[in-house]
C-alpha cells in the first residue's frame, strides 16, 4: 500500500493505493498522524485505488473518525470501489464516515 498526501485549502487528501489491511496499518496510521500533527481539520481518504479493506482497515478508519471528532475535526471517504463499499455498508460505516463520489463534494462538505 502507498499513500500520497495532497494538501488543499480545505484539508488534506490521502490518495491510498493498494489494500487497506492489517498488514498495512502502520503506514496508514503514520499518514493520519502526520495529518493530525499538521492541524488538519478535514481528512479525506481517497479509496479510488483501494481494492480491498479488511476488518482491521475498517477498525482503523473508525478509530481515526472517532479521534478526529474528539478534536472537532472530520474524516470523509472518497470514491470507494463497489466491493469496498459493500464491506463498508455491512458495517454501517457510511453512517459514521460520509462517503463522496466527487472530490469537490467532499471538499464542500466541511465548508458547508
Amino acid at each position: 500500500m502507498q499513500i500520497k498526501e495532497r494538501i488543499v485549502p480545505q484539508g488534506i487528501i490521502l490518495d491510498v493505493v493498494g489494500d487497506l489491511t492489517y498488514a498495512h496499518r502502520a503506514v496508514f496510521k503514520a499518514a493520519v498522524e502526520k495529518a493530525k500533527q499538521a492541524g488538519c481539520r478535514h481528512l479525506i481518504v481517497n479509496l479510488e485505488q483501494v481494492r480491498f479493506v479488511d476488518s482491521a482497515g475498517l477498525g482503523l478508519l473508525v478509530l481515526v473518525s472517532q479521534n478526529f471528532k474528539l478534536h472537532q475535526a472530520q474524516i470523509s471517504m472518497l470514491k470507494p470501489q463497489s466491493y469496498v463499499r459493500e464491506i463498508m455498508s455491512l458495517a454501517n460505516i457510511p453512517k459514521m464516515i460520509p462517503i463522496y463520489e466527487r472530490e469537490e463534494d467532499a471538499l464542500m462538505a466541511r465548508a458547508a
Partner: peptide, 11 residues
Amino acid sequence: LTTASFPLGFD
C-alpha cells in the same frame, strides 16, 4: 440474513 449495523464498540 443480515442488516447493516455497526460492529461492536463503534458506537
